[in-house]
């Protein structure tokens, strides 16, 4: 096993794939930065689409095409839509919200910068002389991925089906309980809740309606995930 091949490679003569990877990587990283720093909540979700789509392009450049399309289907197709629905159902403010970041922003920034510096230093130092050989057959074509998945990884795959079923049932249960709770409405502590400072006083009823909407949405969302997972198979 000789991973360090003969080295006609050089840092100063990047190949076309490397240049494309670098450019798409810059776009992805920039979109991720905007996602975590913007003050407009819906814009954060939309920039997340850019970041995840850029990652799908990176998978394609690494010749992992099946994972690239799974990424587009599941992340861009369903996860971001779920996040947008979540923003909508929690009545996120449209436009600039001044309190999107919490008070410990600078501590978080320091932690992230230190972690990034340490990780980049270690990774660059460790893999300075390692090259991925992208020539030849694709490493992640659908045929190769399917063969390895169904020859070597069948048992985890089936366990994953059980996990998805559990998630589906869990989402339905989480929403159903609230629905049964809201059936006898005005008697219990919900009216008392108005005195609690954490509840915005304006709306018992809008919140309740949002809740029912939410429960319906969650149940359809579960089945949607199931079907998408079927598609991903």
């Amino acid at each position: 096993m000789s991973p360090l091949t003969q080295a006609p490679h050089g840092f100063l003569s990047p190949t076309g794939v490397e240049i494309a990877f670098l450019l798409v990587g810059l776009v992805t990283f920039g979109a991720a930065l905007v996602t975590v720093t913007t003050r407009q909540l819906v814009h954060a979700a939309l920039w997340l689409v850019v970041a995840l789509g850029g990652l799908a392009v990176e998978y394609l450049l690494l010749t992992a095409e099946f994972i690239a399309w799974v990424q587009v289907l599941i992340y861009v197709g369903s996860v971001v839509v779920l996040l947008l629905f979540g923003l909508m159902l929690t009545k996120a403010p449209i436009g600039r919200s001044p309190d999107a970041d919490s008070g410990n922003r600078w501590v978080a920034l320091a932690v992230a910068v230190v972690a990034a510096a340490a990780l980049v230093w270690v990774v660059v130092d460790a893999f300075r002389t390692t090259w991925i050989d992208l020539d030849g057959a694709a490493a992640g074509s659908t045929k190769v991925t399917g063969a390895s998945l169904f020859q070597n990884w069948v048992l985890p795959f089936e366990a994953l089906s059980v996990l998805l079923l559990a998630a589906l049932v869990g989402a339905i249960v989480l929403s159903r309980k609230a629905k049964a709770e809201s059936a006898p409405p005005p008697v219990n502590g919900r009216a008392v809740t108005g005195s609690s400072p954490s509840v915005t006083g304006s709306g018992i009823h809008p919140i309740e309606q949002g809740g029912e909407h939410g429960s319906k949405l969650v149940s359809t969302r579960g089945s949607e995930q199931g079907s998408e997972q079927e598609g991903a198979r």
Binding site: V36, V111, V123
Partner: peptide
């Protein structure tokens, strides 16, 4: 392709997510 390109990009993305988890206030942004 140099292996450092995807490794560095993934390290940077991870730290971006780390900052977001620590600094955001809305649960959905987290």
């Amino acid at each position: 392709m140099h292996l450092a390109y995807p490794a560095v990009l993934s390290a940077l993305l991870f730290c971006t997510g780390l900052y977001g988890v620590l600094a955001r206030r809305n649960a959905i942004l987290v």
